[in-house]
């Protein structure tokens, strides 16, 4: 397979994809509807552990979708999502214990989101303005993860350090009305609703003017700039929004899991987010979501069945997917469905 053939193949498929855009969107939404329906049914057929663990995996899914936003849509690969997830979780943990009542909870979530968005925004603008991009930006996001982990480990007065932090299940209430996440099934449906909400919001965003410009920047940054778009600003906004979503997922994850530790910012966790999205398909929010859910479930099964070989199998699977299905499993499936639909 030569270099040139690859390029033309890429361009051709892009054209086809663009021509088919509305239909592709429908397929993705249809599949998502089915997935959400299945998830909705789980509590009535699954056991108590599934009801306990699936919300955490759905939040991993939200985290993965936040990566789809910057990577799939904006072409900015980030290894730093784990750090923003961690900021969200710690902010909730710290503020919900220090500020009493529902104010502490809301404050925790808000501060986490705002802090993540601000850190991501400031850093991204700082670097995008200087045209730092591609692999170099990947390295910077890796640095964000590492620094996040180091700070979380060392600021032990605040975060509990390497020991981690315990967060009890919170109540999300406004003047007495709201949800109490203490019950596994309540929090299950709450997280499911949140996941659906983020999915819908991101799908809408990708079809908005902002989303289209982002794709334009991904395809050709110089051209977008020549057309008068403030490329650095838009990339910064995307990165910042993605960090905010990651932080929100992190906050809810913290209270769902009951425990957070700096390992959530380390390279292994941050690279596994990339892995979920790559395997699922980075061009589709559904790809990230399914990738996170499915891999977390599979990992867990392999972990209990063959603990010593699970990582090897995951690596082999990952390699096979990256080589074999470049658009990811979900992405390939969606395109295949469209192709079948076209032929008839």
């Amino acid at each position: 397979m030569s270099f040139k053939v690859e390029v033309s193949h890429e361009t051709a498929s892009r054209k086809v994809v663009r021509a088919r855009r509305p239909r592709r969107g429908n397929t993705e939404d249809l599949l998502a509807t089915v997935l959400f329906a299945v998830l909705f049914a789980v509590p009535s057929v699954g056991d108590s552990y599934q009801v306990f663990i699936l919300p955490q995996y759905m939040l991993f899914g939200v985290l993965a979708m936040s990566l789809c936003l910057v990577w799939g849509l904006g072409g900015i690969l980030s290894f730093g999502q784990g750090a923003f997830f961690l900021i969200g979780a710690y902010a909730l943990g710290i503020l919900s214990t220090r500020v009493s009542g529902s104010l502490g909870v809301w404050l925790g979530i808000a501060v986490g989101i705002a802090l993540s968005a601000a850190v991501a925004g400031a850093l991204a603008y700082f670097l995008f303005r200087a045209r730092v991009r591609g692999s170099y930006f990947v390295l910077v996001t890796l640095a964000i993860s590492t620094i996040g982990g180091v700070i979380a480990t060392s600021a032990s007065d605040l975060t509990g350090g390497f020991n981690g932090m315990f967060i009890s299940r919170v109540q999300l209430t406004v003047s007495g009305w709201g949800v109490d996440l203490a019950s596994d099934s309540t929090s299950y449906y709450f997280v499911l609703a949140l996941t659906i909400g983020v999915y819908v919001m991101l799908r809408w965003l990708s079809r908005s003017a902002f989303g289209r410009v982002l794709v334009g920047i991904r395809e050709n940054e110089e051209r977008a700039e020549a057309l008068g778009y403030d490329v650095a600003l838009r990339k910064t906004l995307a990165f910042s929004l993605s960090a905010a979503i990651a932080a929100m997922a992190g906050a809810i994850y913290g209270t769902e899991a009951g425990f957070v530790s700096p390992s959530l910012a380390d390279v292994v966790f941050s690279t596994s987010i990339v892995l979920w999205v790559a395997i699922g398909g980075r061009d589709f929010f559904l790809g990230g979501l399914v990738g996170a859910l499915a891999i977390s479930l599979v990992s867990e099964k392999l972990n209990s069945a063959i603990p010593e070989y699970w990582q090897l199998l995951l690596g082999v699977l990952f390699l096979a997917v990256v080589i074999g299905f470049r658009r990811g499993i979900v992405g390939s499936a969606i395109l295949a469905i469209d192709r079948v639909g076209d032929r008839r």
């Binding site: 509305p22 239909r23 969107g25 429908n26 397929t27 939404d29 249809l30 599949l31 998502a32 509807t33 089915v34 997935l35 959400f36 329906a37 299945v38 659906i196 999915y199 819908v200 799908r203 809408w204 399914v290 859910l293 499915a294 479930l297 979900v330 499936a333 469905i337 079948v340 639909g341 008839r344």
Partner: peptide
């Protein structure tokens, strides 16, 4: 729940996709 294109797909292709979608989404079951 999700925002579908207002025009909507044809009924036939809808059923087809839904069937395929079911298979894909049910995989984790």
């Amino acid at each position: 729940m999700t925002s579908l294109d207002p025009a909507g797909p044809s009924r036939r292709s809808f059923l087809k996709t839904a069937a395929l979608a079911g298979v894909v989404a049910a995989a984790p079951l």
